[in-house]
């Protein structure tokens, strides 16, 4: 039972792609395939030079960041512990963890437990992680949802950062207004099929 069909998508270095579609159109599925978390049942997907399902994907994975609806934090750990744990696992340095939290506006809440932090704060930690691990492919699922004005600047900063480094980014949303200023190309996703590629400016 395919959720996606006839999806033909190419993301070039430095490109920011926006995908717009209603709920249930397959946006999240597409994003999860790009994140190597799902394998397409038919056809092929290649991310950062590695075919999904091949063994090379393990190395490629580390260069991908996916920010979904629910932040991947451990409630019992403090915000800084969450960040350093992730950084160590990723093999990134932890010296800049403090700085990263300050940059996302959490300088005063470093020692707060994640389960005592608001959803917005938890989302900010995810952006701090992106700053720290510097992925080459940034995947944002409804990035703007649930973020206040100030935090929305983080989306912009994260996308700008990956673009500057020559990486790519994919943003999906069902309400494109806030996403559009950030992207080079948009697609419409409906019923699992990609329609209407549109170059922006």
């Amino acid at each position: 039972m395919p959720v996606l069909r006839g999806v033909d998508l190419r993301i070039d270095p430095g490109e920011v792609v926006g995908i717009i579609g209603p709920n249930g159109s397959g946006k999240s599925t597409l994003l999860r395939i790009l994140a190597t978390l799902l394998k397409p049942s038919v056809g092929q997907a290649e991310v950062l030079g590695a075919r999904i399902g091949s063994s090379g994907i393990l190395a490629a994975r580390k260069r991908i960041a996916l920010l979904g609806h629910h932040p991947g934090l451990w409630g019992e750990l403090t915000l800084i512990e969450n960040l350093t744990f992730v950084a160590r696992l990723a093999g990134a340095g932890t010296e800049r963890a403090d700085l990263a939290l300050e940059l996302v506006g959490l300088g005063g809440a470093k020692q707060r437990r994640a389960d005592h932090s608001s959803h917005g704060m938890q989302r900010r930690v995810e952006f701090a992680r992106v700053l720290l691990t510097q992925p080459d492919l940034l995947l944002l699922d409804e990035a703007h949802a649930g973020l206040d004005k100030a935090a929305q600047a983080l989306v912009e900063a994260a996308v700008g950062d990956v673009k500057k480094r020559g990486g790519g980014a994919v943003l999906v949303s069902h309400e494109p207004d806030r996403m559009l200023p950030l992207v080079n190309v948009t697609y419409q996703l409906e019923g699992g099929t990609l329609l209407g590629r549109k170059e922006m400016r």
């Binding site: 039972m1 579609g21 209603p22 709920n23 249930g24 159109s25 409906e190 019923g191």
Partner: peptide, 8 residues
């Protein structure tokens, strides 16, 4: 398949 028709 029937569910998929509803979604979206």
């Amino acid at each position: 398949v029937a569910d998929f028709e509803i979604a979206g």
